[in-house]
Write a protein that binds this DNA or RNA. Structure first.
Lengths: 344, 344
DNA sequence: TTGAAAGCGATACCAC
DNA sequence: GTGGTATCGCTTTCAA
């Protein structure tokens, strides 16, 4: 058996109508307003559909009805589970409203971002979700007079006006530091970089705020890394392990789980302080690697799915009431997850 | 400035035609056969397009022309970089031919696989790439009389006839083992599981073949794990570290990079053999974690992008010559990547 | 309830 | 080259 029908023209409504002995409009009614059709006609049309293997053409339907059931999601980096979570959330919410989400991977390339925005625009999708390159957001948004509604994820557009949904990284940093302080840690260290990345600097600011709230009872040192990979963490970990015992921090906030893992690993290998006996370590992102690691890692979970759901909700609302809709900026809260690495 | 035009009807060809003082057919020509239009007319129409911000409607175009420029890719697990690589490859190849790839994340759920297959079918995409749940492939393929061509990735459909592209895992296992043997290792161990997963058992068979070729000069032991995560590797690593010195393997083939990483980590922590001095370790998949690790990991790289490219090539060929096309089964070769963990 | 016909926004063929 | 027009497959209004 072949998967494909070959070059045979797929059956149309006209064929179904003929076979069921009804008019074409009636077939349409069966598909869209079944309750307005007499039961036996319904039955007759439906079996005709089955027998012919009729598959409605969504393009034609959308064209005629002026509506679409697909939402396009342009994603900057699908290899980052944060964005994949957003996609999942978007899908969940969309599905609730009978809509579908199709993904376009812009793969950290500004040009592809534009290409896919245009594609979705020309495809006349119901609306567009855009998780852009942070630096590129305004360019993309102002590049076209986009004919459809756009909701931006993970970035706050500057000049351009649009709904956007972001994660509160400052709060995440605060929660992490606060947790360490609440469990008795007094000498904190923040490890991460580069600070030009706003997620990193935002998290750092949150840490600073928590420390400031302690009125001088807690100290904070900063160890900058080139990036937020495991290798950066290992480097920093060795650096810390080499410190004078009196200078050792007893609580470490890493800008990302991979960094935290690298630190823990370096401590083990190079005879640094014990985790969590001597030092608490907390990461960020809730990577699989975090809970799967040898010492399960405390972390701050990004509200990825929630962001996807919220963005989709905003988008659908905007689509439905084009007139009265007011753009919103949502700032969603991350969640503290306590595991072994910060439990004495 | 707002991103959206509000509820204004987007300009159509008719509007452009009127503004440029030409017929609607001419506008179409400007878009599709610019060389057949007199330069000054071209210019006039183009500026009308710009001024009005006209964006062609792909649905209408596709409907009228009976063609589509989008390829739908139903992906079982986007969180696995192997599949994301396929998507990248597909995109590259598609782009060469003026086509676009849109992704649907079925997220390891059989139902969603079907939902998206139907969506693409009804959207009348040019063709569909399907990376299915291996167990679900035949069900999906035979579920609908799919109106469009389908190429299957990473799974060989059983009953159903269709093009498919898979990775040669047996060869990968062979290459890995062969590499260890070629560099002087004689007591090999294979670590991985569950063997019910064909990638695992295929890789194991490849290892067996390499060992068999050595005519008894090389030994092989097997350590089964529950899964192919880092935690499974750590467990196995401790198990190995606890062996009598005489029973220690000097070469380990792990079924996946994470497993290999876990092993290396366990060796360090629990005082096992040194890598690579006492024992070579090689993983599989070429994860980022593999080259980023403390001891950069030798591995076998899956031909993900290549699979995506090949599948797209097959798909386009099938679309173009529906008559003469013969289904093909491609089995692509992985690549050995030697790093420090297997270099004495 | 069902049928007939006018769009939806483009393409492509055939005259001029 | 350019203009008119049938057509793509479906929705929806209006009569019957």
């Amino acid at each position: 058996m072949s998967v494909q029908n070959g070059s045979q023209r797929p059956p149309r409504m006209e064929d179904v109508a003929k076979r069921a002995g009804v008019a074409i409009g009636t077939v349409s009614h069966v598909l869209n307003h079944p309750h307005k059709v007499r039961p036996d006609t319904l039955e007759r049309v439906r079996s005709a559909i089955d027998e012919l293997g009729f598959v409605p053409d969504r393009r034609a339907r959308a064209l005629a009805a002026g509506t679409s059931s697909v939402i396009g999601f342009v994603v900057v980096d699908l290899s980052n589970s944060f964005f994949l979570d957003m996609a999942r959330g978007a899908e969940q919410e969309a599905q609730k409203h009978g809509m579908n989400v199709l993904l376009a991977n812009s793969d950290v390339q500004a040009e592809k971002e534009l290409v896919y925005m245009h594609l979705f625009d020309e495809e006349r999708v119901a609306g567009i979700l855009l998780a852009p390159l942070p630096t590129n957001a305004d360019d993309v948004l102002s590049a076209g007079r986009w004919g459809r509604d756009v909701v931006v994820l993970n970035t706050v557009p500057g000049e351009t006006d649009a709904c956007c949904v972001t994660a509160n990284n400052e709060l995440g940093g605060y929660l992490a530091a606060r947790h360490l302080i609440d469990t008795g840690r007094r000498a904190l260290a923040f490890v991460g970089g580069p600070f030009s990345l706003s997620p990193v600097s935002d998290r750092f600011r949150g840490v600073e705020r928590a420390v400031a709230e302690s009125n001088g009872h807690v100290s904070l040192t900063t160890i900058k890394t080139a990036n937020v990979q495991e290798v950066d963490g290992r480097k920093a970990g060795r650096q810390i392990a080499a410190l004078d015992p009196g200078e050792l921090p007893d609580g470490i906030v890493a800008a990302a789980d991979l960094v935290a893992l690298g630190i823990v690993q370096a401590f083990r290998t190079d005879g640094g302080p014990r985790v969590p006996a001597d030092v608490s370590v907390i990461g960020y992102d809730n990577n699989r690697a975090a809970w799967d690691s040898d010492v399960p890692l405390s972390t701050v979970a990004q509200p990825g799915e929630e962001m996807g759901r919220a963005a989709t909700r905003l988008l659908l609302e905007e689509i439905r009431s084009p007139g009265e809709h007011r753009h919103q900026r949502l700032h969603l809260e991350p969640t503290l997850i306590v595991r072994q690495s910060s439990t004495r």
